[in-house]
Each structure stands twice: as C-alpha cells, then as structure tokens.
C-alpha cells in the first residue's frame, strides 16, 4: 500500500467523501468492467459498481489494513454482486434468455438492446461488435454464480481457496463450477475442438 493510498483511506475513514472518490478512481475501471461482464448491461453495471463503492465507503471504518485495500474491496464486490443477482437480475435474465432463444439465428438483432445501452461506439467495428455480442451471449448462458466464479478466476486471478472463501463453499465446488463454465462458454462461443493430425489415442476413451 502506497503512502498516498493509506492517507486517502485515513481521510475516507474520517468521512471525507472526496478522498474516497480519489481512492475509487484507482479501481473503478476494474470494478465497472467486472460488473459489465457480470450483468452484461451498461446501465446495470453502472448501478452495481456505484453500489459497491457506496457500501465500501459506508464500511471503510472496518478496514484495518491487514490485507490490501483491493482485497477488502473485492469481498464487498462479490457480496454486492451476489445480492444484486438475488434481488434484481433474475427477472432480467429471464427476459434476456427469452430474447436469446427467440433470436438465436440473428445475433446482431438479439443483442441489440444491450449494445444500444453501452457507452462506447461499437458500431465502428462490426467484427469487434459481433465478437463482444457472442461472448456476452455465451456468458448469459452461465448461471450467475458460475459467471462470477469464472470472472473472479480468469480476470481477477483469485485462487480456488480465495473464491471458495468468498462464496463460503469448498474448493471442489469452485473447480466444478469453473469446469462447467468453460465447457458452456466453449460450446456457446462455437469453439470446436481443433482438428489434429496426430494418431488417435486408444487409451482412456471417454
């Protein structure tokens, strides 16, 4: 922890909202991007990331400095994401799943509602847009927990133990969830096993 960061934390613990917003500037992109891929919706991601920061500000006095600030913040983020899912996302997911199923032949139309809400100009690059749509659609086929576990592992680099602790479950459960998440993503993104020129393995056929 740099001195500047500890000073900002100290000021925030004294109730300085401006100091806390300066602290938030360091991690806000990371939190927002995770929220965006978790909710797959820009407006929801904005609300969710703001909720994370607000909860963190309210709980800043409980931060003792035993761990890194981001580690502490990430636990708040995980809890907020999971609670957000329980409260609001269920309905949205049902609506989106129906949309995906109805318009699965036309990816562009099927995800247009989401892309229209994003703040960046995806129209400039059609291929890029298709790729993002495809991945977001694939993420939508994961359960909320699978999605969050996958994001925490793949993008945040958390260990099985850290994720298991955050979710209050065993590492075996996390590993299974990750395996299923990868399988589903691969299936939904249409990444087929690469053709090989090697001889077929006779042992241990599935």
């Amino acid at each position: 922890m740099s001195l500047n960061e500890s000073q900002l934390i100290e000021s925030a613990q004294g109730g300085d909202a401006e100091a806390f917003s300066q602290l938030a500037r360091r991690f806000e992109r990371r939190i927002y991007t995770l929220a965006l891929h978790y909710t797959r919706n820009a407006a929801d991601a904005e609300d969710l990331s703001q909720e994370v920061w607000l909860k963190a500000f309210r709980a800043i006095n409980s931060f003792r400095g035993n761990a890194a600030f981001y580690t502490w913040l990430r636990q708040i983020m995980v809890n907020t994401f999971l609670n957000h899912k329980r409260a609001e996302t269920v309905r949205m997911e049902e609506v989106r799943s129906a949309a995906f199923e109805n318009d699965s032949t036309n990816v562009d139309d099927g995800l247009s509602f989401m892309l229209n809400e994003t703040p960046y100009q995806v129209e400039e690059d059609y291929e890029r847009r298709i790729l993002v749509e495809k991945v977001m659609q694939a993420l939508g086929h994961l359960s909320s927990q699978q999605r969050l576990i996958f994001l925490l592992k793949h993008r945040e680099g958390m260990t099985y133990e850290e994720i298991a602790k955050a979710f209050d479950c065993s590492t075996g459960t996390i590993k299974k969830a990750l395996f299923r998440a990868v399988q589903k993503l691969r299936e939904q993104m249409g990444v087929a096993p690469a053709p090989l020129e090697l001889a077929q393995c006779g042992a241990g056929q599935k």
Binding site: V132, V191, G204
Partner: peptide
C-alpha cells in the same frame, strides 16, 4: 493423446476468444 490435445486446444481457444472480447468490450 490426440483427444486430450484437441480438448485442451479447444478450451484454450475459448479462453483466448473471451479475452479478445473482453478487451474489445472495454468502454471508450
């Protein structure tokens, strides 16, 4: 093992596509 290698490449490929999409999805 060709089956295992094919599976591994496939899973790695999915991760690579995901990462490309992640970078592409970052806001302006």
């Amino acid at each position: 093992c060709s089956d295992c290698l094919s599976e591994y490449r496939s899973m790695n490929g999915a991760m690579r596509v995901f990462d490309e999409a992640w970078d592409a999805s970052l806001p302006d």
